[in-house]
């Protein structure tokens, strides 16, 4: 993180349903707000209502600077009480807001081919990465970007309007209602052998079973994969140590890292898949 995170009140400009239980919120921020790197997140909380205690981490979906303010897009799925309350907030209402937080994705040099693998609302940081980190590098090395986008059903696919025409899009649905019938990792498994590990990089974000499947799939494939993890957080600042993920350290030992501060983006090969509740 090159710039400081800030703590402020953000005003909702728009907050609308884009798919069943999926919402797109747009907030207005001061120009002083640091430009987030793809993969970074923000913590938001409705300070006004008698809702949940803890702020909720949401990854950045879009960010633009305007003349006198900045605008951030957040794509979220209603998963519990906190996000349910967000979904009922109206334009003009305010959120307690801090960020940008965490370490984002990096684009290594010498990459020719990029695979983006998204499950469900995990599409959000990958679309931000595509627009801010990858498309500007097209023609300067990257020759091909393939986006594997998966959801349970066709109507739960989000972010399509931001993807059309910008990359080679491969859609997967668990129920077969659109595109490949099966999980996104199922289609990737078919294709994986065709990519050269020397010039390909994978970026992934999705639910825990998908991350685990990616771990299994890439166990023997030497293609590097950066994965953005999701974990319950209390502070988002690295203090509560609540969002631990088990990783292999350089010395070959297993230790815990903080998803909020050491991540949320990790090298998939470093992640230790242990407990059934783990990533």
């Amino acid at each position: 993180m090159s710039e400081k995170e800030s703590l402020l009140t953000a005003q909702i400009i728009d907050n609308r349903r884009v798919a069943p239980a999926h919402f797109l919120m747009t907030v207005r921020l001061p120009l002083s707000f640091a430009t987030p790197f793809p993969g970074q997140f923000v913590m938001i909380r409705n300070d006004e209502c008698d809702g949940p205690l803890l702020a909720r981490p949401l990854s950045v979906y879009g960010f633009q600077r305007q003349q006198d303010h900045a605008v951030m897009d957040l794509l979220y799925r209603v998963a519990g009480r906190g996000t349910s309350l967000f979904s009922r907030m109206m334009p003009g209402e305010e959120l307690c807001f801090f960020g940008p937080l965490g370490k984002g994705f990096s684009v290594p040099t010498g990459v020719k081919r990029v695979l983006l693998v998204a499950g469900g609302v995990g599409v959000a940081p990958l679309i931000f990465l595509l627009h801010k980190g990858l498309l500007p590098a097209h023609g300067k090395g990257i020759i091909e970007t393939i986006f594997y986008l998966g959801a349970r059903t066709a109507e739960l696919l989000t972010g399509l309007e931001r993807l059309c025409g910008s990359c080679d899009l491969k859609i997967c649905t668990d129920d077969g209602s659109r595109g490949y019938h099966g999980p996104v990792t199922g289609l990737l498994k078919h294709d994986i052998g065709g990519f050269d590990a020397g010039d390909t990089v994978i970026y992934a974000c999705g639910p825990k079973p998908m991350v685990r499947a990616m771990g299994n799939l890439l166990q023997d494939a030497p293609i590097p994969c950066q994965v953005s993890l999701e974990e319950r957080m209390a502070c988002g600042l690295g203090a509560c140590l609540g969002c631990a993920v088990a990783v292999r350290t350089g010395e070959g030992k297993t230790d815990y890292r903080r998803v909020c501060k050491d991540g949320p983006v990790f090298d998939l090969r470093d992640i230790v898949f242990t407990s059934p509740a783990g990533p």
């Binding site: 949940p52 205690l53 803890l54 906190g82 974990e231 319950r232 957080m233 209390a234 509560c240 140590l241 609540g242 969002c243 631990a244 993920v245 088990a246 297993t254 230790d255 815990y256 242990t274 407990s275 509740a277 783990g278």
Partner: peptide, 20 residues
Amino acid sequence: RSGNPPPRIMETPSGMLNAV
């Protein structure tokens, strides 16, 4: 000390549980 395995925290009504 490396601490406990995750999940380590859970929000509860007006509070949170932690087992860091």
